[in-house]
Computed example of a mutant assay.
Amino acid sequence: MAGRRALVTGASRGIGAAVAAGLAAAGADVVLSGRDEQALRDVAATLPGTRTAVVAADLADGAAVEHLADTALSVFDGLDILVNNAGVTFPETVAGLSVAAWDATMAVNLRAPALLGARIGAAMAAQGSGSIVNVASLAGLRALAEHYAYSASKAALIMATKVLALELGPRGVRANVVCPTVVLTEMGQQVWGAREKAAPMLARIPLGRFGVPADVADAVVWLSSDAAAMINGAELPLDGGFTVA
């Protein structure tokens, strides 16, 4: 990936930091985005031997998303890879749904990647090539209790990815989506750390474990590369076999 230019959102920790590291290790220049500028700089300082840039942005703010798209495109004079990884979750039952949690979830998990995909995807199409990888969730493929807004946002992101693939594919831009099961990031630990809650989910995963950030990063780097040149509009479960049961 030497010479490729990538934007990774949610890059200050967890999956996003692992994706940024994987892309940099493959030779890509990386723009890291997230809310915590210092944390982004700390991650950037660990990346091997490629150009990096940090653009802090609150993806719950539509204007900030538009600004991020413009800024990221200008840093290295274009982009070849977009990884929409940033996401939030507010676990709550259907009966306990709040307007604030619904709106925040949709803003970050759906509107932000959709806007970035549209703006940056159009720029990629103008140059005739590019790869967009959206990080959705197994909760977008299978209903998950206490994740009403989260599941809805991730299911919609999967379909948005397919529209990107359909419209931008003829102009050389691929769009794919990965759907991880529980990943043991800080957010994953908060929701699934309790053994009594984790056990029923683990029992449904044939491999018998939850994911780690490297599991997702490896898949994202592969989908971003020429090794996946014929893959467009795919949804890739990273679930240890959960969906085969």
Rank of each mutant, 00 (worst) to 15 (best):
T105C: 07
I158V: 15
T181K: 04
A149N: 03
N84V: 05
V83Y: 02
L168H: 03
H147S: 11
E167H: 06
L144H: 09
A149T: 04
L168I: 00
V183E: 11
G121R: 00
L97F: 09
C179F: 04
V99I: 10
V99F: 08
T105S: 09
G169A: 11
L166I: 15
V133L: 07
Q190S: 09
R174W: 03
A125I: 01
G130M: 02
A139E: 04
I120Y: 07
L82E: 08
V133A: 05
E167F: 03
A112W: 07
S137Y: 03
G169R: 01
V83L: 01
P180C: 09
S131W: 02
L166A: 15
A126E: 07
P170M: 13
C179N: 14
Q190W: 07
L110Q: 07
N84S: 10
N176W: 13
T181N: 14
S98M: 03
A136L: 03
T185C: 06
V182N: 07
L116Q: 05
V183H: 02
S98Y: 02
S98G: 11
Y150V: 12
G117S: 07
Q190H: 11
A145E: 13
G87I: 07
L138K: 03
T161P: 02
A145N: 12
Q190Y: 07
Q189F: 01
M106S: 06
L115W: 04
G121K: 01
V163S: 07
A136G: 12
A136N: 05
L138E: 11
R111T: 15
A165N: 05
L157K: 03
A155Q: 02
S98F: 03
T89S: 13
T89I: 11
V177D: 08
S137K: 01
A156D: 05
L82Q: 05
G188V: 14
N134V: 10
S151D: 13
A175F: 06
V173I: 08
E92A: 14
L184I: 11
P113D: 13
R111L: 04
V163R: 09
A145S: 10
A143D: 12
N134Q: 06
R119N: 06
A100I: 13
A126L: 05
E92M: 12
M187P: 08
A156W: 00
W102T: 10
S153P: 09
E186T: 15
L168Q: 06
A160T: 11
V173C: 01
I132H: 00
V94L: 15
V163P: 03
W102F: 11
P91A: 01
A125P: 04
A104P: 04
G130P: 01
A125T: 04
V182G: 05
G117F: 12
L144R: 08
A100G: 09
W102N: 09
P113E: 13
V173T: 07
A126H: 11
A107R: 02
G130F: 01
D103W: 02
V177G: 10
Y150K: 01
E92C: 12
R174S: 05
L110W: 02
K154G: 13
I120E: 04
A175R: 00
T161Y: 04
A160W: 01
A107S: 13
L157M: 12
S129L: 00
A112D: 13
G130V: 01
Q190D: 15
A95V: 14
I120D: 03
N134G: 10
E146Y: 14
L141Q: 10
A114M: 15
N109T: 04
G87L: 10
A118N: 06
G172V: 08
T89N: 13
T105A: 09
T161I: 12
S129V: 00
K162H: 03
